[in-house]
């Protein structure tokens, strides 16, 4: 397995789609992911908050296979053991999850480690502890994560992106209408849940977002 760490990672973070069963309206994760990838998603994250782990394993195996076939980054949220069991490409942790340094210690130097900082200090600490990228947000108000706190805005993305060397993705309330501003604030990509998973046409929603991200990145260069 070729590691996604390093130069490959930036491109893999352009359109980062996170699974959410409650928003999927009965459509299986693998089907949502397949359509999202067809539309231009570059990364898929398995986020499993409720339900038996055996189900997460089953879904995760499908996503693992799909992402390998399509050349898309596959990340598991929170559970480092699940990420290892599924042979995921990466794991994503937040401030109440396992610390970045411990996560890095468990996964070795091949896997991507992502972190969601709440403050600039946490962002800098995570970078020093071995994080490969940061998910910063919520950029805009969001209903997907009721525990995510108030929107931090574009300035927060700008401040963190300017302070760290590792790539930053914006997350929280991002749509095709506002994604361009997130990229212009310094993010290399956007992470979305409802804008893609909750869309009637998942493929179209992903394609529209990807187009906006690519155009904004091209303008920036």
């Amino acid at each position: 397995m070729v590691s996604w760490r390093g130069t490959r990672l930036r491109d893999a973070l352009r359109l980062y789609v996170i699974t959410d069963r409650t928003l999927a309206r009965g459509r299986p994760e693998s089907e949502i992911a397949r359509q999202a990838i067809a539309g231009g998603a570059t990364a898929i994250q398995l986020r499993w908050k409720t339900g038996p782990l055996s189900e997460a394993l089953r879904v995760g195996r499908e996503l693992r296979e799909l992402c390998s076939r399509e050349g898309v980054l596959f990340v598991v949220n929170d559970r480092v053991d699940l990420a290892l069991a599924l042979e995921a490409d990466g794991v994503h942790v937040g401030v109440t999850d396992l610390p970045v340094a411990e996560t890095r210690r468990l996964v070795g130097d091949q896997l991507v480690v992502g972190f969601s900082p709440e403050t600039l200090e946490q962002a800098l600490e995570a970078e020093a502890a071995g994080a490969d990228y940061l998910g910063v947000g919520p950029v805009y108000p969001t209903v997907t994560k009721p525990d995510a706190g108030p929107a931090v805005g574009l300035e927060h993305v700008q401040r963190i992106a300017a302070a760290v060397r590792i790539p930053v993705v914006g997350i929280g309330g991002i749509t095709a209408e506002n994604a361009g501003a997130v990229i212009r604030a310094g993010a290399v990509g956007v992470a979305v849940i409802s804008a893609v998973v909750g869309a009637d046409d998942v493929r179209l929603a992903a394609a529209q977002l990807r187009k906006v991200v690519d155009e904004a990145l091209a303008e920036r260069q």
């Binding site: 038996p52 782990l53 055996s54 189900e55 394993l57 053991d81 699940l82 290892l84 069991a85």
Partner: peptide, 14 residues
């Protein structure tokens, strides 16, 4: 491991 938890093989390997 819970009944619905990780496979034993994964636990042994790790």
């Amino acid at each position: 491991l819970p009944e619905q938890g990780l496979p034993v093989r994964a636990a042994r390997e790790l």
